[in-house]
Design a protein around this nucleic acid. Sequence first.
DNA 1: CTTTTCTCCTGTATGC
DNA 2: TGCATACAGGAGAAAA
Length: 295
Amino acid sequence: MPELPEVEVVRRGLEDHVVGRTIEQAQFYGARVARRHLPGPLDLSDRLAGNLVAQARRRGKYLWLVLRTPSGFEQGLIAHLGMSGQLLVEDAGAPDEKHLHARFTFADRGPELRFVDQRTFGGMALSDLTDGGVPETIAHIAPDPLEADFDQVGVARRMKSRDSAVKRALLDQTLVSGVGNIYADEALWRAQVHGERLCSALTRPALSRLLDHAREVMLEALGQGGTSFDALYVNINGASGYFDRSLNAYGQEGRPCPRCGAPIRRESFMNRSSYSCPHCQPRPRPRAGLRTARP
DNA sequence: CTTTTCTCCTGTATGC
DNA sequence: TGCATACAGGAGAAAA
């Protein structure tokens, strides 16, 4: 599942293999991949031909190519990988993938760029750029912890004032972007905090330390090419990352906690799975007056 | 306004 | 063997 480190690996691949090239033709197959481009896939295709790819940028889990027309007008081609999206650079002769949704050919007749996505939660769209260089349609996405001007003090303060579970806040992309289920669980394990603790029950320094852990675990994962459980996340060359070997909590149900040896537990939270150490990350005590399900 | 739940999608694993 | 069900989960819409 591509989160910040995996998306950054893809961005670097695009920087190396696509930036500096001119799009000859962009084709979109089916309506779903361009569903967030409201004028539709044919309009998107028309607008892309002839553009120079000037930059490959990222915020959180969003990627965008800065495209430049011959007259110098710039826009952002946003790509989100969703759960299973892949951007692949391949020779034109390579057989079409089963879930191929978009194909870009270039004026230099070099390798193609393809968007492949099994579960189609991902997509592409064209957007004007704001003064800050971020596409308008993702202006609501907060800066991620790897950005130079990430306002950690401000984020910790906003978290402190939230009346919700701390894991929910970590996953809220309008608060801090780039963190998904895997790195949220890993950051909480490192911070020794249970994800269902309320934000307001933690101190601002503790919230700041949690953000430090989120940044550090994502940086470490980036250094190992990201986390791959299967062939659904790969870099633009189709290769897997290997941070899955370094996971301490996520997906480790029943295995000993690397810190204390207690078996890692799996719990359901927000209709997905959360993994934590029952000893290092005790559940919060139910508060008086809190409504609980009763059979 | 804030917070939570629902929905989109398909391949894989599991149970009867 | 076949069919039903659970699960993976990001993000925006809808509901509370």
